[in-house]
Design a binder for these strands. Structure first.
Lengths: 148, 148
DNA sequence: CTGAAATTGAAAACGTTTTTCAATTATAAC
DNA sequence: GTTATAATTGAAAAACGTTTTCAATTTCAG
């Protein structure tokens, strides 16, 4: 399966950084890679336990730290939670999130620099960073408004 | 003082909604109105106590609920906290936040609809809402990089 | 196979937010 | 003013998510 291959990559990257390959970490990595949406640590713990019943919640937190450090996952802020974890993407991309099922899709940000210029001039700020996130209904949830 | 007048307005709005005017609530309202940045509940509690020593933290939480319900304050997500409270503004505006001192300034959002269109077409999503927030250094913090 | 070092899960500690409850206070009616 | 009543209060306790501590286990290099 595809996610297994990607999980291998992540495990190798962990090892390359001096961390060890363990069953607990693999379970966590596979849960994150298999998910289309950002997950809370508790959800990762619960799903991971199905695959590796000995898994502890503390290990989830510790592994997330390392994956974030490696840039493999990203913390996502949502109205319903601000410590949600999603696989990261390369380059500067923004998120589009389904308000119904949570599905998270990355998209290439437009060039917002004209806006930044304007705001910088108006405010005197030196603008360094920005957050942009869109919310809506994904195609599937538009068709099945009742589901879930 | 200006903030006192605005505090009166907020207290009247609370009363109009059937809530009572109390010293605890007034202290909370004045702290929020006097602040240039979003505050954590605990900060509001500590500042509010200087003005009204009997204030309880629970009352802060309960008052914030009501102020949010009335649309007078807004919860702000920041890297260092996701339950920060800021006076709200009319209409659809976005925030520019100083990464050094926390100062928060509202600005009129550009027209992002062309971007939404493009993303909607590419993803099949029906886009309903968006978050846009800019971060940078305010004019004062650019001048005094050392200051706190 | 062996030993050293990293990793583990459970329990305890922690900080934040919510709930519970009896006492107090604001308000409207008199 | 005084009074009745319903909202509001703060403290304590509970609930929640996250972090720390620690002894036991596991990984991995040699």
């Amino acid at each position: 399966m595809k996610t297994a291959t990607r999980a291998d990559e992540w495990m190798t990257l962990l090892q390359r950084e001096g961390y060890r390959q363990t069953a607990a970490r693999r379970a966590i990595v596979e849960v994150i890679l298999a998910s289309q949406r950002a997950l809370e640590p508790m959800e990762i713990f619960e799903c991971g336990r199905k695959q590796y019943p000995g898994l502890g919640l503390v290990t989830v937190y510790r592994t997330l730290e390392k994956l974030e450090e490696l840039g493999l996952v990203q913390r996502v802020h949502q109205p319903n939670g601000c410590n949600m974890v999603l696989r990261a993407t390369q380059g500067h991309q923004h998120l589009l999130i389904c308000t119904h099922c949570g599905q998270a899709v990355y998209f290439e940000g437009d060039d917002l620099h004209p806006l930044f210029e304007r705001v910088a001039q108006g405010s005197g700020f030196d603008i360094q960073d920005h957050w942009l996130q869109l919310f809506g209904l994904c195609a599937a949830c538009q068709k099945n408004p009742g589901e879930n």
